[in-house]
Simulated assay, not measured.
Amino acid sequence: MTDISLTQSKLLHFQQFQILLPDVRDYIRQHLPLDWPELESLLGVVLNQPLGSLSTLPLASCVAVGGNPKQAIPVAAAWEMLCLAMRILDDVQDQDRPEGLWATVGLPRAINFGTAVYTMCYELLAKADWSPELYCIISRKLIQAGLQLSSGQDKDLRGETRSVEDYWQTIEGKNASAFAWACAAGALCGTNDTSLVEACRGYGYHLGLALQLFDDFEGTWETSGLTDLAQGKVTLPVIYGCNLAHEQREKLQFLVNSGQIAAYEFQIRNILDSINTRDFIIWAALKEREQALASLDPLPQQEGVTALVAYVSVIFTHVEDLLLKS
C-alpha cells in the first residue's frame, strides 16, 4: 500500500496557513450586517472559535500558483460561509441530526438563516480589495457552483440515483463543485494562468469526491448516530450492491425498490459486507486521492503544493484501520 502518512514536514507547511485564519474570522466579522444581532450570534461557531482546516484550501491554492495568500482571505471567508450554509440547509432537508440548527430555531428560521449565510458569500466577495475583473470572475464561478450544488441536491432528494454513473453525477454537483470552486477561486487570487487555476480546480474536484465517498462510508459503517440505512438513504454502498452481480442482488434490489431499507438495515449491511463493499468504497476514494495529487503536478510553488498534499493526506490517515475492519 502507498505510504499516505502525514510527515512532520508536511504538517508544518499545512499549519503555517492556519496563522491567517484569525484574519479570515476578522474579515467575516467586519462585514456582518449591523442590524441583525441574531445572525452574528448564529455565526458565533465561526467567529468565536478557531476555524477548521477547510479555510486553508483557498489560501494554499493561492500560494501554490505563486500568489500572496492574503489576497485569498475573502475567498476563504466566503468558503466558510458556503460550508456553513450547506450544513444548515442539508440539516433542514435531512432532519437527521438533533443538534442541527433546525431543531433549535425551527425549520422556517433555519431556512432563513441558511439563505442569509449563503448570501453572505457574495457580500464577502464584493468587499474584497480586488480588481472589478477578478471579482466578476470569482463571483460568477460561485454562481455556477451554487447552481451545480442545488441541482445535485435536488437529484439526491428526488431519489432517482440508482446507478453508479447517476451517483457520480449527483456528488459532482453536491460536493465536488464546491471544493473545485474554493481551490480555483483561491488560485485566481494569485494568477491569471488558466492552466494553473485548472490544476487547483482539479485538485478540489477530486478532493470533494473523496470526502463524499468517506461520508458515505461513515454513514453506513462508522456513524455514532442514525446510519444512512436507518434513514432509508440510497448512497453508494447500496447502489454498488444493487449493481454488482452477486447471489443476493435481487433480494437487495427488492428491499431498496420497495422502500424497506430502514426496516432491514442489519440484513442489508450484512449483504454489503459479504460482497466487500467497504473495500470498494475505500478503493474508489484512494483513486480520487491519486487524481487529486496528480492535479498538483503543474503548480510551481512547492510551499503551497506541500500544504495541499498534506490536506488530502490527513483524510487517509486512518484508511488502513478502515481496511482492517472490512
Rank of each mutant, 00 (worst) to 15 (best):
V105G: 02
F266Y: 07
W283I: 05
S131G: 08
C183T: 09
L272N: 10
P98A: 14
Q212W: 05
S163Y: 07
A85P: 03
L89A: 06
G225Q: 13
L188T: 09
A126I: 08
A110E: 13
L236H: 01
N192D: 14
A263H: 12
E198W: 05
K10A: 09
Q16I: 04
E265D: 11
Y264R: 14
S163F: 10
M120S: 07
P98R: 09
H31Q: 08
W283G: 06
T7N: 03
T2K: 14
E198S: 14
L252C: 06
A110T: 10
D3A: 10
S224C: 09
D26K: 12
L39T: 06
V46Q: 13
N192W: 03
E40A: 15
R201E: 05
G67N: 05
A180N: 01
C83A: 13
L213R: 00
Q231K: 15
D156R: 06
A128H: 00
F217I: 02
G241V: 03
V45T: 14
K251P: 01
E288D: 13
F217C: 04
G225V: 05
L213N: 02
G259S: 11
Y240E: 03
V164T: 06
L255E: 04
G232T: 06
R25T: 14
C200R: 00
L149T: 10
S274I: 12
I19N: 12
T7L: 01
F214S: 05
V319H: 15
L59M: 07
L213E: 02
D216N: 03
F113S: 06
L324V: 15
A116G: 03
K155Q: 15
S295V: 04
L299K: 00
T277D: 04
A77F: 02
E250Y: 11
L226T: 14
Q231H: 13
E265V: 01
N48K: 10
A199Q: 01
Y167P: 06
A184F: 00
E288P: 05
V65S: 01
S177Y: 00
S61T: 02
P58W: 02
L188V: 04
T161F: 13
D154L: 15
N112S: 10
C121K: 01
K287I: 15
N175T: 15
W168F: 12
L57E: 06
V75C: 00
D129N: 07
A64R: 07
I171G: 07
Q144R: 07
D3K: 11
Q95D: 08
Q260I: 11
R29W: 02
Q169C: 11
H13T: 08
A210P: 09
E303A: 12
T191E: 12
L211G: 08
Q248Y: 08
G146F: 03
E265S: 14
I275K: 11
T2D: 14
A85D: 03
R249V: 12
Q15K: 15
I261H: 06
L11R: 13
Q260P: 07
S326Q: 14
A103P: 08
H31D: 10
C136K: 14
H246W: 14
I73D: 00
S295T: 03
V256W: 07
L286V: 09
Q253L: 13
G202R: 08
D321S: 12
V45S: 15
Y203P: 05
L296A: 02
Y264N: 13
L293N: 02
